[in-house]
Design a protein around this nucleic acid. Structure first.
Length: 261
DNA sequence: ACACGGACCTGAAGGC
DNA sequence: TGCCTTCAGGTCCGTG
């Protein structure tokens, strides 16, 4: 939708996880989408006014493209369902429809220059696929942390954009137990393939593979190494462990107690 | 300051 | 069959 003008916005409910910002529709109407980028799990649409439309899909959110709209009207022709909460009618004649059954999503409008101070953005750690994220930075972020490795990976200040599934997957690839203290990464400093380096590399690996497979479409279509594989055999070569599940900070963790130490 | 657990929300799946 | 409960996900907020 880059370079298209937002001709009309249909807001079909007052809130998602939070209320839409005030004058949401008026502020968006007539603006051109200049770039579409991402930070952590936030989608960022830079607008011609200098403002940024910040969007989060929560867990059940999605966008889809709908075809033409009739001269007469909109909703009926588009065949909207009750969970279609926002419709952006673009200058191309297409509509971008935001659907989110569970309404864990979020939209906000950020004033020009205010993005880095936005509460959703300001505390974020490094992008996992960037050079800023490696064993050294991961170890530093975990120094003195009393929480578990699993919880540390879910902490968006440590690394931005990792969720529950890939936290488990990365720990498995790295051969590290999710139950260990995060601060173990900070100890013996510097060995070339220390735990922190292995874990940082594993995070990059599982995310790159997920992107290549286009998992985002529906994570249930994917098969994972450990996620949702409780009681099934560990897939690591020569490991005869069985995948376990347990709850950590209210979320399911899957791991192999044999090869993850 | 940090760490944890509950709340938010709905659909899917399982139990009775 | 159908009702009821439980669970999943990401983030925020209150409490310890």
């Amino acid at each position: 939708m880059v370079r298209l003008r937002i001709q009309e916005v249909e807001l079909r409910r007052p809130d998602l996880r939070k209320p839409f910002p005030r004058r949401f529709v008026q502020r968006l109407t007539g603006q051109t989408v200049q770039t579409l980028t991402r930070r952590a799990k936030y989608l960022l649409a830079a607008l011609s006014s200098g403002e940024t439309l910040l969007m989060h899909l929560g867990m059940s959110g999605s966008f889809r493209l709908e075809g033409h709209r009739s001269a007469a009207g909109t909703a009926a022709r588009l065949g909207l369902d009750p969970h279609d909460h926002v419709v952006f009618h673009m200058s191309s004649g297409k509509a971008v429809v935001f659907n989110d059954p569970r309404r864990f999503g979020l939209m906000d409008l950020v004033p020009a220059g205010g993005l880095t101070e936005h509460p959703a953005i300001s505390g974020l750690g490094p992008e996992p696929l960037s050079r800023d994220f490696d064993g050294r930075t991961l170890a530093r972020a975990c120094r003195g942390k009393k929480t578990s490795l699993k919880a540390a990976l879910l902490d968006q200040r440590v690394v931005a954009g990792l969720g529950n599934i890939y936290a488990s997957e990365a720990l498995h690839v790295a051969g590290l137990s999710p139950l260990r203290r995060a601060s173990v990464l900070a100890t013996p400093a510097g060995a070339p393939r220390d735990a922190a380096s292995r874990l940082a590399a594993a995070v990059k690996q599982v995310l790159q593979e997920a992107v290549a497979r286009q998992t985002g479409r529906d994570y249930r279509d994917s098969r994972f190494l450990v996620y949702e594989r409780e009681d099934e055999p560990c897939l690591k070569a020569d490991c005869h462990g069985v995948i376990r599940r347990r709850t950590q900070s209210g979320r399911s963790t899957y791991y192999c107690p044999v090869c993850q130490r």
